[in-house]
Nucleic acid binder design. Sequence first.
RNA 1: GCUCCCAUCGUCUAGCGGUCUAGGACGUGGCCCUCUCAAGGCCAAGACACGGGUUCGAGUCCCGUUGGGAGCGCCA
Length: 469
Amino acid sequence: MPSVRTRFAPSPTGFLHVGSARTALFNWAFARRHAGQLVLRIEDTDRERSTRESEAALIEGLEWLGIDWDEGPHRQSERGGDHAEAIEALLSKGRAYRCRCTPDEIEERRLAAIATGAKWTYDGRCRDLDLGTDCGPHTVRLRLPERGALTWNDLVFGESGQDAREIGDKIIRRSDGQPLYNLAVVVDDLAMGITHVIRGADHHANTPLQIAIYRALEREPPQFAHVPLIVGPGGKKLSKRRDPVSVQSYREEGYLPEATCNWLARLGWSHGDQEVFSREEIAALFDLGSVHRSSAQADPAKLQWLNQHYIKALPRDALVAQLLPFLEATAQRKLKPTPELEQLVDLLRDRSKTLADMARLARFLVVDEIAYDDRAARKHLKRQIERPLADLHDRLSALEDWSEAALESAFDEVRARHDDLPVGKLAQPVRVAITGTDVSPGIFETLAVLGKRRTVSRLAEAIHFLRHG
RNA sequence: GCUCCCAUCGUCUAGCGGUCUAGGACGUGGCCCUCUCAAGGCCAAGACACGGGUUCGAGUCCCGUUGGGAGCGCCA
């Protein structure tokens, strides 16, 4: 068995959360870095909330990010036998005991304890009753030592731990016979030979109990590394309503997986001053020692910058392929790559933070009818431009050579005939006429891409618009 | 409330007792370029939360305060 086995163990109760995605990325990178393996385990023991749909979404998210795993997906729900066996073993060795206290009784005693100022841990009422299977509805609790440090050396947080007495005897099996999370993870991590548990810092406080379970099972705990949480604006917890929390939402907004990975990797981890990391570099350079201990705020602006960086670097074919779905959505029809589209995409790289941006800017090329943006039309399609525009229309209709250079000289001629009209004064109205907006790549490049037929007809439409509104 | 954790520019971070008049990146502002928008180039503003120690010397070590976070489930 390889010396390193990590695991990613999400619960399938929604989409792939950015925090989970980063945990997955770190597990993946750590495994790859050490020539180890990554195991995928779906923690679906909460039957109420787990669905196959979200399991599929989880997997789709991982695949999109380019995070591959070596084993699984295992499902925790299919491992009930192991869990039950472990609990029986603990019971028979006296490391666990049956407890028939009901939730109501416990709540009552808890409140009473807190009222006197004491702090509450389970009071051990059933601890030494030696209850058998015939004791009626009951849970099973782990018998913790009276005291004793439950410590570990966290690969991110350093020496960590808590005393057993702070925790109290915790339930490891529900009265319906189902094992609890903390028991199940330990049994599964053991069964799967996990050597390094890399997970969100929200589990840091669970770890002492898990250490206690490992000891009760008389097994060595793995190494633990807790990675800080990703938080939203103002350092507040990410909110589903306010913040984009799923990687799917980033995908839908037109972020590239490379950019998303890079962004996630730099949230809580760094490698000197380096900002740009390919997936391969992440896998080659990732180390837990450089993971920060404080939580990180997700900064969308930095993701945008990274995304544009990767858009600029992506080979043309790949970029067109990635763009197509976004373009089809905005054009409302099926599309195929064309030489014109490929040219335009190259012109748009420097102007797009996301694929959605790029689709918006490329729309004029793939739709038959453009609509004028109100503000742009009011500003640039004014009465006094009618004559120069009409002149340009006629000049371009007669143009044989539809090259950027030829277009530029045509513009120059027309401008000269109209009191040396400045380039911008002509370019902006033309831009609105052919794209509907006052934003596009250079005007000659744009016209060259659009082609003669459509340029001429859109100019005619603009002139009509100027004359008749 | 209790337990635990964290704390460098607005944000992500470098820093692992002297090399720090604290470095980089994003973002922001200005200038250049310019037919629009970008991209690009140049420049700038911007941080060691606070208070005590330890030390010849502290962003770096210790303690407290403040501020944030996590956990305290028959959820995962």
